[in-house]
Amino acid sequence: MTTAGSGWRYVHGALGTSVRVTSMAQGADVVKRAVEACGDDVDEHLSVEMQRKKVTMTLQSARSASVTHRDHELAALISVSLGDRLMWATGVRHGPPHSRQVMEVIIPTRDPSVREFWEIATGYDRERGSADPEDPLVDPLCQGPTIYFRKFDDRDGGPPVCVNINVGRDEAQRRIQALRDFGARVVADCPQELHTVFADAAGNEVRIVPLHP
């Protein structure tokens, strides 16, 4: 859903947009303008991820974990501040910049413990105010996909969900131990290949792989 002016979209509880840049210096200038446009509200509402070719901006109230009227106002102010830079950065003389893309994972389950399993395995947080076992898990760094949980019955078929998670060695060991303490079923323990595969109560599998230093 397009909102808050050209180039902004409402995706999974936040306003987001991406701006193409040609260098880190140009990206830093885009971030500087966005921060200045938000003024005193910047820390409460704006999140930024800067890469060599792209700057991604997200607006959401940190207090309510939702999009507020002020977020829409800030999106409009940022668009005005960037102005020609937005059109030039996308290589399009007329039209919106590229909006961010969000990937979501949906896991079928009948067991409430499945959500806790994936919370431990991914290091994700529960959405603010969530209590239902079907409520999603979100990446606290806003980089990975949101994980949803869907009830199914015996008539539903299909293979289990399989996910590879590559993390630093210390964090991988911590998660592997946490899953063992949780009582997760070990599908494969491969010390030579430095990874361990666990399955949740619904048969979905996760492979925890330590990254090489």
Rank of each mutant, 00 (worst) to 15 (best):
T3I: 10
A4C: 09
G5Y: 11
G7Y: 00
G7Q: 02
R9M: 10
R9L: 07
Y10G: 04
V11R: 12
H12A: 14
H12F: 10
A14Y: 03
G16W: 00
V19Y: 09
R20G: 13
T22G: 12
S23N: 04
M24V: 13
Q26I: 08
V31L: 10
K32T: 07
R33C: 02
R33V: 00
R33K: 15
A34Q: 01
A37H: 05
L46V: 01
V48Q: 05
R52G: 04
K54G: 05
V55P: 02
M57H: 07
T58P: 00
L59F: 06
Q60P: 00
A62K: 13
R70P: 00
D71P: 02
E73S: 12
E73T: 10
A75K: 10
A75D: 04
A76F: 04
L77D: 15
I78G: 01
S79E: 05
V80H: 04
S81C: 03
L82E: 02
D84V: 07
D84A: 13
A89Q: 06
G91Q: 07
G91N: 06
V92S: 09
R93P: 00
R93H: 07
R93Q: 08
R93M: 01
G95I: 02
G95Y: 10
G95A: 02
R100V: 06
R100S: 12
Q101P: 01
Q101G: 08
M103D: 14
E104K: 14
V105K: 05
P108M: 12
P108F: 06
P108R: 15
P108E: 09
T109Y: 01
T109L: 14
R110F: 00
R110N: 10
D111E: 10
D111Q: 11
P112W: 09
P112I: 04
V114I: 09
V114R: 07
R115L: 02
R115I: 06
E116C: 08
F117G: 05
F117S: 04
I120L: 15
I120F: 00
A121M: 07
T122H: 02
Y124H: 06
Y124N: 04
D125K: 15
D125W: 03
D125Q: 11
D125L: 11
R126N: 05
R126D: 03
E127R: 13
E134Q: 08
D135L: 10
P136N: 06
P136A: 05
P136W: 11
L137W: 04
V138D: 00
C142D: 11
C142F: 11
Q143R: 15
G144V: 04
T146A: 13
I147R: 07
Y148W: 11
K151S: 10
K151G: 08
F152M: 07
F152W: 12
F152A: 05
F152P: 00
G157E: 01
G158P: 03
P159L: 12
P160C: 04
V163T: 06
V167Y: 03
V167W: 03
D170Q: 14
A172W: 05
Q173F: 09
R175C: 04
I176E: 09
Q177M: 05
Q177F: 01
D181L: 15
F182R: 03
G183I: 11
A184C: 12
V186F: 10
A188C: 11
P191G: 08
Q192F: 11
L194Y: 08
H195T: 10
T196W: 01
F198N: 03
F198V: 06
A201L: 10
G203K: 08
E205F: 02
I208D: 02
V209P: 01
P210T: 04
L211T: 09
H212N: 14
H212E: 14
P213K: 09
